[in-house]
């Protein structure tokens, strides 16, 4: 006899009660900033999070991505309140939240960033690699398109000034790759997408290898570069045209939920 079950999913009623609801989650983000943009840092109080985030802000200012920045400091265990969020997004054209390096603070830094994003302000969250899974989980919960996630090696609190400066420079490059000032929008690929690209293309790489061609993929400043090289003795008849190869790569990534803007893909091909 069939048994009917009532499962504990009830988001219709939660939605009616005013819990936030938003669109479909995306894996790519493109950030468009006005001239004289202002950056809002949500510093979560973890040791040296302020040092790292402020170094990133200084770098962005030096590179004329932003004109100014301000810091909102909070405790690791706090969420920003609605009024704090509103004040932040009124003033900021871009928000960076972090640095998540524990269970609770990572989820809260992520949700802080997402809540700013939901008000229309582009947002980045920075966390340590150990807690990348919580950033993804918190992001997935909201289902918001466009949150950019950046990761640094765990931990941050014990790092030297030199390490922090170097990480800030690397993060700045990643952010610059994802933003443009006044309408020159660049494609941006988030860090966790980057990490999964080799797996997503594994079948293609194996197929190419069987035909005598090596295929490598490298991310650089938000762009994916795929290089195909011919091994000695490989038959040229086995190689599909470059245009067809590019469509194949884009299609495979899209099927894995990692659609790239055309400008984000570069292919180095034999004979090209």
């Amino acid at each position: 006899m069939t048994i009917r079950l009532l499962l504990p999913f009830d988001e219709r009623r939660l939605r009616q009660a005013g819990a936030p609801q938003v669109g479909v989650q995306g894996e790519t983000a493109a950030v468009n900033l006005p001239h004289n943009a202002v950056l809002g840092l949500i510093v979560n109080g973890k040791t040296k999070a302020d040092v790292l985030l402020e170094a990133v802000a200084r770098n962005l200012k030096q590179r004329a991505v932003i004109a100014d920045y301000f810091m909102h400091s909070k405790k690791p265990s706090d969420s920003i309140s609605d009024s704090q969020r509103d004040a932040l997004v009124d003033r900021a054209d871009l928000v960076i939240s972090g640095v998540g390096d524990c269970g609770g603070c990572t989820a809260l830094s992520t949700s802080d960033a997402i809540r700013c994003l939901m008000k229309g302000v582009p947002a980045f969250v920075i966390a340590t690699t150990k807690f990348a899974f919580l950033v993804k989980a918190a992001d997935r919960e909201y289902g918001v398109a466009g949150l950019a996630r950046l990761f640094v090696e765990h931990p941050v609190w014990s790092r030297s000034d030199a390490w922090l400066e170097a990480e800030a420079a690397r993060l700045t490059d990643r952010i610059v790759a994802g933003v443009s000032v006044a309408g020159q929008c660049e494609p941006f690929v988030s860090a966790d997408v980057e990490a999964t690209i080799p797996d997503a293309l594994a079948d293609l790489r194996e197929g190419m290898s069987a035909d005598g061609y090596d295929m490598t993929s490298v991310m650089d400043e938000g762009r994916l570069t795929i290089s195909v090289t011919k091994r000695p003795g490989a038959g040229e008849a086995c190689l599909i045209p470059q245009e067809q190869f590019e469509r194949l790569v884009s299609g495979m990534l899209a099927n894995k939920g990692m659609a790239l803007a055309p400008e984000a893909l570069r292919v180095t091909y034999p004979g090209a």
Partner: peptide, 24 residues
């Protein structure tokens, strides 16, 4: 009422309704 929401976690999208609590 089943549809009453018992609360939403501050800063998050998720909460639990009376009905969900009863299912659990």
């Amino acid at each position: 009422r089943p549809g009453d929401v018992l609360g939403v976690v501050a800063g998050r999208a998720e909460g639990i309704s009376v009905e969900q609590a009863s299912v659990c």
